[in-house]
């Protein structure tokens, strides 16, 4: 389980997180929504130990990662996979090398096995073998996103963080990716945190939904509970998206 307690963080005097309290149950998928600039990406990076909070605690399986340093933190990071909002593909490596990277670094698999697994993951995100030898800057935005997704999934980590996994994808591909996230979730049973605006699609994969607003979590619940949540901010956000989709 991941537990955030009163996490605050400012950048240049601007308070982005202002006392975030959130519990992410183990083995479940939690969706975080909120306006652009609300601090969702910053929140994910806190969970992954990439940013330290100004105050507050982030407890993962009973262990406060804000207090961890050096090797301890490094060990902890091995349990995470993260899909960055911008993909964060290594631009000096080909698609194949990018997806193979975590296996090469974290495991001692044979070259043959690595080839097989990379191909498998790329198949899952509908990328044909020709793409393997391309470099990231030769790909479209949506393709980059899918390569990054394959790279995150191939690590089969205990905790997977997805920062807007479907933004920029067409509707069929969006469904494919959401389907993939829930399918791999069934297989690996990771604890997932997904940042996404794709309402209502994302509700289908969510066990729990939380809304970040003005630096705090203002609503948490199952997708059904969130849809019936009385707070107008939550309602406007959900329906604003739905109106937009219907228009």
């Amino acid at each position: 389980m991941i537990k955030l307690i009163k996490v605050t963080r400012s950048f240049n005097g601007q308070r982005v997180l202002d006392g975030v309290d959130l519990e992410v149950p183990k083995g479940k998928i939690t969706v975080i929504m909120g306006k652009s600039g609300a601090g969702k990406s910053v929140l994910l990076k806190h969970i992954a130990g990439l940013i330290k909070p100004d105050s507050g605690q982030i407890i993962i399986d009973g262990f406060d990662i804000t207090q961890a340093t050096g090797r301890e933190l490094q060990e902890f990071k091995k349990r995470f996979g993260i899909l960055f909002q911008g993909g964060a593909l290594f631009d000096s490596l080909t698609v194949f090398e990018n997806v193979a990277f975590p296996l090469r670094e974290k495991t001692r698999l044979s070259e043959e096995e690595i080839r097989k697994r990379v191909r498998e993951r790329l198949d899952q995100v509908a990328l044909p073998p020709e793409v393997e030898e391309k470099f990231p800057d030769e790909l479209s935005g949506g393709m980059k996103k899918r390569v990054a997704l394959a790279r995150a999934l191939i690590q089969e980590p205990a905790i997977l963080l997805f920062d807007e996994p479907v933004t920029g994808l067409d509707p069929p591909m969006t469904n494919t990716v959401f389907h993939l996230i829930s399918k791999t979730h069934e297989e690996i049973g990771y604890t997932g945190v997904v940042v996404s605006h794709d309402i209502p699609e994302v509700f289908q994969i969510a066990d729990q939904v939380a809304m970040l607003h003005r630096g705090r979590i203002i609503a948490v619940g199952t997708p059904e509970e969130i849809q019936r949540f009385p707070d107008p901010v939550v309602q406007d956000f959900i329906h604003g998206e739905i109106d937009y989709m219907e228009a």
Binding site: K45, K77, F90, E105, K106
Partner: peptide, 18 residues
Amino acid sequence: GIMRITEQLDALDTMAVN
């Protein structure tokens, strides 16, 4: 610098590569 702003350095970090 580009690796920093495109989060490639962070990505390395999360893959337990210093």
